[in-house]
């Protein structure tokens, strides 16, 4: 269990998971350019998602027993945690619906997008998840400075992702004639990236609030539910992109 780990080994674990995720992403890209198999790509995405859900989002914490009474902070945090996960479950149906629509409408075709940019924004989001994990781990060990730095880097990377997708990718696509109203390929591309970008944006705002409150000394080693919530939400946004990236950039042939 990570909360009993000392800081060094928690940090080591974060680095290790970050490396695994990076290797798997590179593997995805290699599969896509060599022998494009939908099954293998899906499997890799599921493995990545499982790593994020377990090691970054700490899904196992849902199972923790709480000793205090119903009014204790620990018990209430457990309730909050369940509420947040239920919300993510609900939200994942939106993204699931978008994936279903994408495969129903486009089949095994994909939009013509800038592959290098796709890989870059994916890497940026992955890196942001790594720093988010560092921020949360630092807070859990009472290191406020490390926490604030981690959050700040996450915000910067998140903003970078937004600029990459909305500022650059949308512009490039539109310049190549792929507009929202041209055909259903454009419609799906802007809908999926737009919905995801909207979640990234809310995540960045959430992190901004956490950063501000954290600087004012609002969170402590023992009581930092706000930090945990922001982290879990941020990793969820990353988890969604783990499925959206292959669905938009890798799977299928160019339309």
């Amino acid at each position: 269990m990570s909360h009993t780990q000392d800081k060094a080994s928690a940090l080591k674990q974060g680095v290790l998971i970050g490396v695994y995720l990076a290797v798997l992403t590179a593997l995805e890209y290699f599969i896509a350019i060599s022998f494009m198999s939908v099954t293998v790509l899906t499997l890799v995405a599921v493995v990545k998602a499982a790593l994020v859900a377990y090691y970054f989002m700490h899904i196992y914490k849902l199972n923790e027993e709480h000793e205090g009474g119903h009014d204790s902070f620990e018990y209430k945090t457990g309730t909050n945690r369940l509420g947040l996960w239920l919300f993510l479950l609900s939200d994942s149906f939106v993204f699931g619906g978008l994936l279903v629509s994408r495969f129903n409408l486009l089949g095994l075709e994909r939009p013509h997008l800038n592959q290098l940019l796709g890989l870059a924004v994916t890497a940026v989001l992955l890196l942001s998840s790594f720093f988010m994990n560092r921020a949360e781990t630092s807070m859990a060990h009472g290191d406020t400075k490390g926490f604030l730095n981690g959050i700040l880097i996450t915000i910067l990377l998140g903003t970078g992702f937004l600029l990459g997708v909305v500022g650059v990718e949308w512009r490039l696509a539109a310049a190549e004639g792929l507009t929202a109203s041209k055909n259903v390929v454009g419609g799906i591309f802007y809908m999926m990236t737009g919905m995801h970008a909207f979640h990234v944006l809310t995540g960045v705002i959430f992190l901004g609030l956490v950063y501000r409150n954290g600087r004012n000394g609002y969170f402590t080693k023992e009581q930092h539910w706000g930090v945990e919530a922001a982290a879990v939400y941020w990793h969820f946004v990353d988890l969604v992109w783990i499925f959206f990236y292959p669905a938009l950039y890798l799977i299928g042939t160019l339309s």
């Binding site: 129903n104 409408l105 109203s181």
Partner: peptide, 16 residues
Amino acid sequence: FGMGFFDPVKGGNPVL
């Protein structure tokens, strides 16, 4: 925005 999800002219599918 004219996104053609359910518009067959743009490749969409009303049954979806």
